[in-house]
Design a protein around this nucleic acid. Sequence first.
DNA 1: GTCAAATGTGTGAACGTGCACACACTAGGA
DNA 2: TCCTAGTGTGTGCACGTTCACACATTTGAC
Lengths: 336, 336
Amino acid sequence: MKSGKRATVHDIAAAAGVSRGTVSRVLNGGYVSAAARAAIERAIREVGYVPNTAARNLVMQRSQAIGFIVLEPHSLFLEDPNIGGIMLGANATLSAADYQMVNLVVDSERDTARITRYLSGGFVDGAIIVSARSHDPIIQVVGGLALPSAFVGHPRDLHPEIPYVGIDNLASAEEITRRLVTTGRRRVGMIAPAVDRDSGADRLIGFRRALGPLFDESLVAEVPLYDFACGAKGMRTLLERDPTIDGVFAGSDAVAAGAMEALREAGRSVPADVGVVGFDDSSWAQRTRPTLSTVHQPAGDIGEHAADLVLRQLRGEDIPQRGLLLPSPIVWRASA
Amino acid sequence: MKSGKRATVHDIAAAAGVSRGTVSRVLNGGYVSAAARAAIERAIREVGYVPNTAARNLVMQRSQAIGFIVLEPHSLFLEDPNIGGIMLGANATLSAADYQMVNLVVDSERDTARITRYLSGGFVDGAIIVSARSHDPIIQVVGGLALPSAFVGHPRDLHPEIPYVGIDNLASAEEITRRLVTTGRRRVGMIAPAVDRDSGADRLIGFRRALGPLFDESLVAEVPLYDFACGAKGMRTLLERDPTIDGVFAGSDAVAAGAMEALREAGRSVPADVGVVGFDDSSWAQRTRPTLSTVHQPAGDIGEHAADLVLRQLRGEDIPQRGLLLPSPIVWRASA
DNA sequence: GTCAAATGTGTGAACGTGCACACACTAGGA
DNA sequence: TCCTAGTGTGTGCACGTTCACACATTTGAC
């Protein structure tokens, strides 16, 4: 696979005139004289030595890899603007710590079996789990294995020993909805995607809380997915239920874009007739006309923190607080 | 890390009443009696034995990992609708063959140094390289190492022994541009992103070829990136150079969306005043108003084929043809 | 001058696997 | 009977590393 042979500890021990043990000690810390250390470091530099991962992993009983488990269909993996950013953030932190990130997208039943085997096979030392739902079998495996891991998001009532990182969906939803009310909107509805997921459920609760006495059950349109089509469909439902609707909180930017499309079809203008706000601050938000007021999700930071949470468990540190909620500031643009 | 100890070949050899060697043989093929095989397979199933990757990798002198190298800034990694699909396709094929995909995003100079070390360190057995440019140092490293690899895209005049997979940018660009001409457009321009990349350059050549005598150098606006902002800027440039322009081929869907935005600002209607076509068939294409006619890129297939190309080299098969061009059908929608 | 602690260094064993080799048994032909 | 080929099986070694242990040298206190 390579030109010649890879250099080993033996080679550089010979080159530096010391033994394997001493080389190992300069690599991993321990008592080494200044002279020996200098000679060894010089030899390492000259030969271009890199320790063999497989040998190290074998003796250390670890894999030096972290699984990045996405419990979503492949298509959604692509659509969701956040997952990519989270992945990149996690990857950056992990590779800086010399860990390798292994992507595991769990879509079909077959995937579940494969990944379960993979996880129990000691192929990874830890896991970052995205889009977890309580009932998922993968979660049970991770919990049972006591694999150092972190959730992205906040799955309720499940494995309370596993830390999580996310944003305060509830508070942010409440805050952005309140803006609709304070700017005079009186018939405010919500297009609520994925209420079976903690993020979706929390956004709905925040919305309800912001509205208080103004809340009207009939002005909530639940839709399955965080996407454009669901947004358009949800908006049409709301318009049908109450044509006097003058404000909408969409559960995501893609949903908001769909809603604006439906409003345009219905001849309503945004924000004059209806105020619209979204969630995510994804690339959608700046492409809609008018541009979208929304909640900014710090995807990269979330990924970095999730990775950090796993790394800290691996180092044996204990995690002070179970949950970590990152700031998700509101970005005011033109749609409300 | 796990409850108790992982089972090893010894354990299941003992359980089945045979020796390590025989167990190894049922795992890797060889002469084994039916009785022994049955006993061993039963033991494996009962104990839930999974071979230790590190030990196997150590003795086999390989890492069982393939690098997925993206030579782009992180931001572009997220923006580019194709990369995600390619990644998913490659990941699926690789993990089906029990290989692990390691994401390596090369952005800064520091990344280059780290990845170079990583590649030469034997951490990966092969590489899939996306968005290669001829001058990139990483390419030199891969070439020098003779690492089994495949390009996504078609970098010209560089390492002719490395196979590639992609689409025929030239032919597709020519075909979709021709449509503008046959539907009566006479002043047809192009917003040409990333002409320093093979994909960008080929699309420009295809455009020129389709136009033939109608081609006008002044109606080509070169822009650096495949994104919305560049599309808007490019369109404004074209409108300025020739207000009678009636057709535009945008180098990507994001660029086309930006162009349509600029056209709207300038009070032109699409497709009545100006016909617009894009490239990629990304999620942009169905979000524009009107929806975009574009070239469909089979991103998942490209990833699968690239992975397959690497796997075949690893198996020692020789690759019959150097380049593999996948079909990229045109999708006709409303914008032209 | 002796002992103990601190500082360095070398050596053997172990991690779990695959592979080459030695060996055992059977069957069939000369 | 002997040899050869085919079919099975067990054993030793190697892969490259880390770690525990044994040992050597220096330092400093009593």
